[in-house]
Write a protein that binds this DNA or RNA. Structure first.
Lengths: 184, 184
DNA sequence: TTTATTGCAAACCTTTTGCACCAGG
DNA sequence: CCTGGTGCAAAAGGTTTGCAATAAA
């Protein structure tokens, strides 16, 4: 009941109206952020932002560049990185790492915070959300006098499809008695 | 009550006996893993393992190399990486990313699973543990038919010392009204 | 003796940066 | 106009890899 899985095929789909709304809002916000910081809203930045907000999942910088290129927009890799960084600064994007050797970015507007399950078998990523868990995170922060800005939880394991093969994997990876704890 | 903070100064200390025990156990396990896979227990691997298990916090590969060098052991960077990788394969180490552009490693034996709070102000890292949270993670996995192998939760924010300055930071980073959600 | 391992340096990959030219505000 | 932005290519860093020499088993 706390968890909210989305159906497999449109996991990252958003109602068209909501998407348009969030793209518009994002551009307004970005524009505001830029002018407040004496920065400029260039065509490149606008294109990147729009494309980025059309993608409702985590994406890597290069992938975003290819999306743009496919849409006929040519922007240099450097500009992609620079703009993504600005979007993070502006609070419109989040940079996350999912165990790979590079970063992913995901937009924030119009999406709830969520956690990830990363399948070690097929690389599939399941997004999920648990309000109770979020509450616990905040409670722990409070107990440590820590002011949380954001958090990121990844579970690595095997999805349903892959878990048939996972038995063997787990045995290999963990040895036969991995659950020992120190006794003091 | 669910949270268990360790005092600041010996956060990563382990009773000497427990440490010795875990180092011994680790070497046994590693030896077993190696021979099962027709790999060899070289002096380098033994030294790396022993030093690694003397460090009770997350460490980066280079740092481990310096520790070894300081202890008079010279091993090449390549061997460090290769061995750390083996340790991960063997289920004796965990590779984690903490928002930096490189990986950290931490050993597993003799330490309970734990989460991290990363201070964006001073880079200090607070380790914490909440059994209830762990339970929730498992519950969510079950609901998604996902078999978890391990998980990793990082909270980014500001520690007590830094949170005085954090107000300004947050205002800058998030804009004045970052908490909006889509109404789908 | 056979097969894996080591160290070194070069290769890799993602991300960042210096610079000359260009363009928002 | 002035100040920042863009593309390019080179530079950075962390991590991986090919290879010849070396050493476990």
């Amino acid at each position: 009941m706390a968890t909210r899985a989305k159906p497999k095929d449109d996991r990252y789909r958003l109602p068209a109206a909501a998407e348009r709304r969030s793209r518009k809002l994002a551009e307004e916000r970005f524009g505001r952020y830029l002018s407040e910081h004496d920065l400029k809203l260039t065509p490149e930045r606008r294109e990147i932002l729009q494309e980025f907000y059309r993608i409702h999942e985590h994406i890597e910088a290069d992938e975003l560049m290819f999306h743009l290129r496919r849409a006929g927009v040519r922007v240099s890799r450097a500009t992609i990185y620079r703009t993504l960084d600005l979007l993070v600064q502006a609070g419109l994007a989040r940079r996350i790492s999912l165990g790979k050797d590079h970063s992913y970015y995901e937009h924030i507007l119009g999406r709830e915070a969520h956690e990830h399950m990363v399948c070690l078998g097929c690389d599939r990523i399941i997004e999920w959300l648990d309000a109770e868990l979020t509450r616990l995170v905040f409670r722990n922060c409070a107990e440590q006098s820590f002011s949380p800005a954001r958090h990121s939880l990844q579970v690595f394991g095997y999805c349903q499809d892959c878990s048939k093969t996972s038995e063997a994997h787990k045995a290999l990876e963990l040895g036969e008695d991995a659950n020992l704890s120190s006794g003091d």
